[in-house]
Design a protein around this nucleic acid. Structure first.
Length: 106
DNA sequence: GGGTTGACCAATG
DNA sequence: TCATTGGCCAACC
């Protein structure tokens, strides 16, 4: 696990727009290295200074250890939520490949 | 070097 | 929708 890899992960998380989320798998795919679990491991170790609550599991459910704080952030950012309490991944997902302006084309 | 675990993912019943 | 299974990559004992 290189520091460079960590920097890449944090960089992507920082680019997630307000009110949107991304998944560990998408980050792993974007980096094209290691796997989703390593992204999770990086977040666990170095995810402090970045909006870690915008990174969720593939189905939109909150990852382990995301306490009530994450939920409060979703409410504050108006992130689409499901009745289950998880994020509405289909509506809120953001692709790391996206250049940053989700609505720029319309 | 082998077994287990982890902020995971996808397929299957 | 939930639980189980196999796969994935790296770290730890």
């Amino acid at each position: 696990m290189d520091d460079e890899y960590v920097e890449q992960v944090l960089r992507i998380v920082e680019r997630v727009p307000r009110g949107r989320v991304t998944t560990y798998g998408l980050i792993a795919e974007a980096l094209g290295r290691c796997g989703p679990r390593q992204v999770g491991a990086v977040m666990a170790a170095y995810g402090g200074p970045v909006p870690w609550w915008r990174v969720v599991r593939a189905d939109g459910s909150l990852p382990a250890s995301h306490g009530p704080e994450a939920h409060q952030e979703y409410l504050a950012e108006d992130t689409p939520l499901r009745p289950s309490g998880a994020v509405d991944i289909r509506a809120a997902v953001w692709l790391p490949d996206d250049d940053g302006y989700p609505q720029a084309s319309r």
